[in-house]
Amino acid sequence: MMTILLRYVVRDVLRSKWLALYLTFFAAVTEGLLYFTAGEAKTVIGLMNVVLLLIPLAAVVFGTLHVHHNRDFVELMLTQPVSRPSIFGALYLGVALPFMAAFVIGVGVPSILHGVAFTAPFQALIGTGCALTMVFFAIAYFVGVAIQDKATAMGAAFLLWLLFGVVYDGVILGVTVAFADYPLEMATIGMIVGNPIDLARIIVMLTFDYAALMGYTGAVFQQFFGTTTGIMVSTLSLALWTLIPVYAGYRTFCRKDW
């Protein structure tokens, strides 16, 4: 039953001008960076800064709006012989998957044309971009379902983006400066894991040989995230960052009065 609903949610999102704009933007930025900068490293670094801020922002804004804009459609689905978990699954995947595909096509096609798509940095960038799409649409869906008022939900979603995208790094910087005399390596790794955007940034950065340029911290990250345990921890963390908000959204959706 979920696949039937999913088909129509995807169809609605595919016809949205925002999705076309999103795809075009990533294609234009990737092509522009590949054309004007010499070397894949500069392109990936440039793209990484765009991906790490834009994907979470677009996901929280579009995801939260999608929940509120489609309340009557949700009601229509809820009045049919379909279970609430199926409806929630169709709504979440129906929005997140097209945006993920738009990002992959937008970045993937120009990078294939320039022959850099199958390098480790590009693959890490595309992989983490996909993960961030799923994470932040999950957060947006939880916020959109949990908060009844559209303006309040949008405000909360935007604040979460600000927290993860900007404030969190400031907090980490503050902590490392304040406790500079203490061994903070593991604590820093713990704090990095606590923010999916930082985690994505580290995963992409470590695919370069430039990790050493980040000094002692870079070496510590390389030592941890470069190992099998580190890769497993980072993958598991991103998976948990998706699953926890999805589960919270699912629980809220199933108990919600429409």
């Binding site: 039937i4 129509y8 229509l76």
Partner: peptide, 29 residues
């Protein structure tokens, strides 16, 4: 709900779907 039909006060459905899509979706369900 297989035996219930419900018509709500406000019929606002997704902007980009057509009535034909909605009928096909309900038929599919």
């Amino acid at each position: 709900r297989t035996m219930i039909g419900y018509m709500s006060q406000v019929a606002r459905y997704p902007d980009n779907l057509t009535p034909q899509d909605l009928v096909a979706m309900i038929r599919g369900i």
